[in-house]
């Protein structure tokens, strides 16, 4: 008989419903990931008790850990389910939705708040226009390499899921958005609007909410040095605050 993989999944019919658990046994295949488990359940939605159930709802798209969609809590650890290989996981494999966002259904959550935070901190470069205005500013290889680390943020939500200061009912923008402030304030053109972005993180829900637990940097799948960026931003907001004071 084929080797089976044991999976326990926390399910919830909709935003208002009570959560419940279901267990499945899925045929093992070498090198399979959690996505394959969920796909196999779609093809045969029957629990370990032999009861027919609905396929499990979850979010996914690229399956290469570059889009950030398929994030969930696997054996207690927040991560992308595409790069979670079954061989590396203890069984039963326990799948739960992310913990800080409203649940849409089963493993699928609504991460709108993270995108709103990017709006709030003005995470963009205000270019003059899309016309042919010639080359951009020169940049050193070192600066490019440092910025590239931060520009790979997928807004997947691992960092905010792990952050003790980010709760479903507060207004903290979270480490991902702070990382983006650091990124844009480093950019040769982005620097021009540095103060605007700093102001955005100096109010309610801003950088002072960070408790320096350092969970964010530990769970980031792209190994973004979030705490380094946040520490440097801390310095920048302090001197900005001082400047503001002197201006008065």
């Amino acid at each position: 008989m084929a080797k089976k993989v044991e999976v326990r999944i926390k399910r919830q019919k909709d935003n208002q419903a009570e959560p419940y658990w279901e267990e499945f046994h899925v045929d093992y295949q070498p090198n399979m990931n959690v996505i394959t488990l969920l796909q196999e359940i779609q093809r045969n939605p029957v629990t370990v008790q032999g009861e027919k159930t609905t396929p499990v709802a979850w979010d996914c798209s690229c399956l290469e850990e570059i889009c950030g969609a398929c994030t969930m809590v696997i054996n207690g650890q927040v991560q992308q389910s595409c790069s979670a290989l079954v061989d590396n996981l203890e069984q039963p494999i326990v799948l739960e939705p992310m913990r800080k966002f409203p649940i849409v259904r089963d493993l699928l959550v609504d991460r709108t708040r993270m995108f709103e935070a990017l709006k709030k901190v003005k995470a963009w470069i205000p270019i003059d226009g899309t016309y042919d205005l010639g080359a951009g500013p020169k940049q050193s290889q070192t600066n490019q390499q440092e910025m590239y680390l931060y520009s790979r943020c997928m807004t997947c939500g691992c960092c905010v899921d792990a952050c003790p200061q980010y709760t479903p009912d507060n207004s903290f923008v979270g480490p991902a958005a702070l990382g983006q402030v650091f990124l844009f304030n480093q950019n040769p053109t982005g620097k021009f609007n540095k103060e605007e972005r700093l102001a955005a993180i100096m109010g309610d829900g801003g950088i002072q909410e960070c408790g320096n637990a350092q969970n964010c940097v530990r769970v980031c799948p792209k190994e973004i040095p979030l705490t380094t960026g946040i520490a440097k931003l801390n310095g920048a907001t302090l001197s900005q605050a001082l400047k503001n004071l002197l201006k008065k």
Binding site: D132, L133, G136, F184, T189
Partner: peptide, 10 residues
């Protein structure tokens, strides 16, 4: 060049 001006980390 336009994408570079938008901040792409080329």
């Amino acid at each position: 060049y336009l994408m570079d001006r938008m901040g792409v980390t080329f």
